[in-house]
């Protein structure tokens, strides 16, 4: 969908103040992951705090301090390669330990009780070009930088 070059390493620039809560990012994520628009499958979630600014729940990758999901996994199903924090779905036992440790509420369990989260679409996140207000951008790629570096959960 996007002609953007891949990011040097995975990192979102996120500014919830700019989010209009349209959920287009969620729809685009679900579509690319499952071929249908099923919002429950989206790896990014907009949490409403109407009328206050919403929460944006998605993995921060490089911007996540300590990446606590990795040591939390008892079966070592989560690992980081070049900042790409990824879950090995086959190894996952669905214990939910990573869900509790994630400071961004970015990991959930799917219908088969396996943990899933954003994988940055391998470098070109499908959600980013859909965001009309740049609440969501790829960090350091010419996008307007978000005011939230580490992210507010």
């Amino acid at each position: 969908m996007s002609d953007r070059p891949p990011a040097a390493g995975p990192a979102f620039a996120i500014d919830p103040e700019k989010c209009t809560e349209c959920e287009r990012c969620m729809g685009a994520c679900a579509l690319v992951k499952t071929r249908v628009v099923r919002l429950a499958d989206a790896c990014i979630t907009i949490q409403r705090r109407w009328p206050e600014v919403p929460g944006i729940h998605v993995c921060r990758f490089k911007n996540c301090a300590g990446q606590p999901c990795i040591p939390a996994c008892p079966v070592e199903a989560i690992a980081s390669r070049d900042g790409y924090v990824l879950i090995d779905r086959e190894a996952c036992t669905g214990c939910g330990a990573c869900l509790e440790e994630c400071p961004y509420q970015a990991i959930r369990l799917d219908g088969e009780e396996r943990a899933f989260k954003c994988d940055f679409c391998g470098g070109r996140p499908a959600c980013v070009p859909e965001c009309a207000t740049f609440a969501l951008a790829v960090a350091g790629k010419g996008a307007e930088p978000g005011r939230e570096a580490g992210g507010r959960p």
Binding site: T20, C22, R24, V53
Partner: peptide, 28 residues
Amino acid sequence: TRAVACYGCPVHCGMLHKFRQADGSEGW
């Protein structure tokens, strides 16, 4: 002012405003 959108809409024509109401209190 905070712009809010309907589902999937890039236009976001909805506007939320923070007001000083007639009774002096602040509200959206």
